[in-house]
Design a protein around this nucleic acid. Structure first.
Lengths: 234, 234
DNA sequence: GCGATGCAAGAGCAGTGCTCTCGTTTGTGT
DNA sequence: ACACAAACGAGAGCACTGCTCTTGCATCGC
């Protein structure tokens, strides 16, 4: 019955594990994933570099842990914006959630690069990241669901060659919504994160200056794509 | 007057430079930027690792050269699709260019990651990459310009707080088009590359199956966002 | 022909991820 | 209470990296 790890040993283990992650996250935030060194983390923690491997079997495993944390942090931010805008019109909630996501990305560029940038190692993200990764998408979907319940959702059209795919998508993660909105949700999700990525990764340098206004306007267009009626008359 | 590099010396120099880039590009294509090692390139080229530094002062400089090449390769692909669809309806040209970009990205995932993924080193892309990087965007703009000349462009609306920005954008790179289309072009450009990035980087795993049909449908929606009338009745 | 320059090679530095071994500490079953 | 097993920390070491410096050689302009 060691499944319940009582004892000071186990307590120390989770404490040290947390300390390693914390220090790694600090270095990640200010240097980026490529410069994250296990030895450097061990050094500032006052332990031998080989000791780290008792807690994370490889550098990639540490990165995976940080990836999950980043997904969760972003997901929490999105969900907080969702809760904070409860009761407002769907169009306003949409921009609230989108702006929260953008704000997190701008505040945590390296974390954002870690989860939505190019996959660092030989990619193939472990399946353990899926639940944390889907929180953002579900926050966006919640706004759409809200609008649908209020009868304020203009269900988009779907071409014939996508009907089966739309049905499959809807059955997988929005069984309570019309199938036609599923592809639109996925598309808008990808476009939104791609848009934010461009801003975070500096592609807008010397191209977009009024980035906040530009983002609001673009996000209103995305809202229309999923069938929402955006708040501001853009 | 050594601006015209005559002599066998200079000829050997550009040949070796090209050989280094070629071998580096090969390794990049099959391993990714993170695994690209100067020593490995030198090894397979039969030269000492220190000799590489006569041609590229640092690893980042080699990467920058590869970045420019990737931008140019993608830009050429987009421009070829533009020329190949000359005469067709704007909506069809739009999907042709978009599909060409997507095809290139799927065929060269590591190159795509290099230019549109997270910036590898301490980012801040050198100004020398700008001309090559803008070719894709201009290919997309050309379709819009084509539609505008044919009187088939539905100029989108722009909110008041973006009017000045739209005018500045338009003056910078589309002085012959109505200012209101400039922000839409930039937004659609970012969203398109973001969408492709999600597919290339594996974010669509277990989410989108019929990726080609999904892409075509989404791209038709992007066309509408810039004021084009898409070809297929989606 | 002769200096000046460009170039290749080797050694070397500091750093990395990761493995292995060796005592030591801690927890557990008898 | 004792003994055994598991977990642990530290150190040495391997193979690798980007990059620098020095040394000798080939090439170029004059």
């Amino acid at each position: 019955m060691t499944s319940t790890p009582h004892g000071a040993r186990a307590r120390a283990r989770i404490e040290i594990t947390a300390a390693i992650k914390e220090e790694a996250r600090r270095r990640l935030a200010e240097q980026g994933a490529a410069e994250l060194s296990l030895r450097a983390v061990a050094r500032t923690l006052g332990m031998a570099s080989s000791a780290i491997y008792r807690y994370f079997p490889s550098r990639d495993d540490l990165l995976t842990a940080l990836i999950i944390d980043a997904y969760d942090s972003l997901g929490e931010t999105a969900e907080a914006a969702l809760k904070g805008s409860a009761g407002a019109a769907p169009g306003e909630r949409w921009t609230a959630v989108c702006e929260a996501i953008r704000g997190w990305a701008l505040a945590h560029p390296h974390e954002y690069a870690l989860i939505y940038g190019s996959p660092v190692p030989g990619y193939a993200a472990p399946a353990t990241t899926v639940p944390a990764a889907s929180r953002v998408g579900f926050a966006l979907i919640d706004v759409v669901r809200d609008a649908h319940r209020a009868g304020e959702l203009d269900v988009p059209a779907v071409p014939a060659d996508l009907e089966a795919e739309a049905a499959r998508m809807a059955a997988d993660f929005v069984p309570d919504l019309p199938p036609a909105v599923a592809p639109a949700c996925v598309a808008v999700w990808a476009q939104l994160l791609g848009l934010i990525g461009f801003e975070v990764f500096g592609q807008f340098t010397r191209i977009v200056e009024e980035r906040h206004a530009f983002f609001r306007h673009t996000v209103a267009g995305l809202a229309r794509t999923v069938g929402l009626r955006p708040a501001d008359a853009s």
